[in-house]
């Protein structure tokens, strides 16, 4: 397995009102392909900031971060869009599904935007909805589904893109224990069977025990 992410001396500061907050302070990180990683740590420790940097949705400030050997700070906006579109999948705590689209349309949306042929899109939608066990619910809108079902649709949406990495920010936080366990099992099997790198942030002990590798952050540093 090769190294997907390699970071050195990553520091990130943001402003909260008039105060400067040092979210990350000299983080070195190496993420291997196909692993199941958990970013752990208390609130404000820098988990979300690190995920944002790994997902290319915040710009690097200090330090170096390489994605598959490419220096992220040197990528153009178009190159970053392309990586996000084809190589990274996201699973959010609040699901972030499009409420106006049906479950299958939610899964298909970014595949259309990838420019895939319709037959390929249909196949991927069917495969991923079967994989998360929601094929029978494909015509439902998010508002007609439970929290666990919505999160599984979000995972299907991320998975259908066939990304190299799936990033999840507290994907079980809005779910009950049993549903959260199912979600984590789904993500873990992805990392194991499909060779997808899964990086999620969580406080959940169940997640920590299931992860192949736990990266614990405190006050913006890895401990």
């Amino acid at each position: 397995m090769g190294v997907l992410y390699k970071g050195e001396g990553i520091a990130f500061e943001y402003r909260l009102g008039t105060q400067a907050v040092q979210a990350l302070n000299g983080v070195d990180i190496a993420i291997e392909q196909g692993g199941f990683y958990c970013l752990a740590g208390p609130s404000g420790s820098g988990k979300t900031t690190l995920l944002n940097l790994l997902g290319l949705i915040d710009d690097m400030q200090t330090g170096r971060l390489l994605f598959d050997g490419a220096e992220l700070a040197e990528l153009s906006e178009a190159e970053k869009n392309r990586i996000r579109r084809f190589r990274i999948g996201f699973v959010f705590q609040t699901f972030n599904l499009f409420p106006v689209l049906r479950a299958d349309e939610n899964v298909a949306y970014f595949l259309h935007r990838q420019g895939l042929p319709r037959s390929e899109i249909r196949q991927r939608v069917a495969d991923t909805l079967h994989a998360v066990g929601l094929w029978e619910h494909r015509h439902k809108r998010p508002a007609e589904m439970s929290g666990g079902q919505r999160q599984r649709i979000a995972i299907a949406r991320a998975l259908a893109k066939k990304p190299e990495v799936i990033l999840g920010d507290e994907p079980t936080a809005s779910l009950d224990q049993e549903t959260g366990k199912g979600i984590i099992e789904t993500l873990a099997s992805l990392a194991g069977d499909a060779g997808v790198t899964v990086i999620i942030s969580s406080h959940d002990p169940m997640v920590l025990t299931r992860a192949k590798s736990v990266i614990t952050l405190r006050d913006g540093r890895i401990v």
């Binding site: 949705i57 869009n81 990586i83 996000r84 579109r85 999948g89 996201f90 609040t94 972030n96 935007r113």
Partner: peptide, 16 residues
């Protein structure tokens, strides 16, 4: 706003 953030996170450009 959050949906638009989701679109951007999944590769949509500002132009999109």
């Amino acid at each position: 706003k959050q949906e638009i953030g989701t679109l951007r996170a999944n590769g949509e450009s500002r132009y999109d």
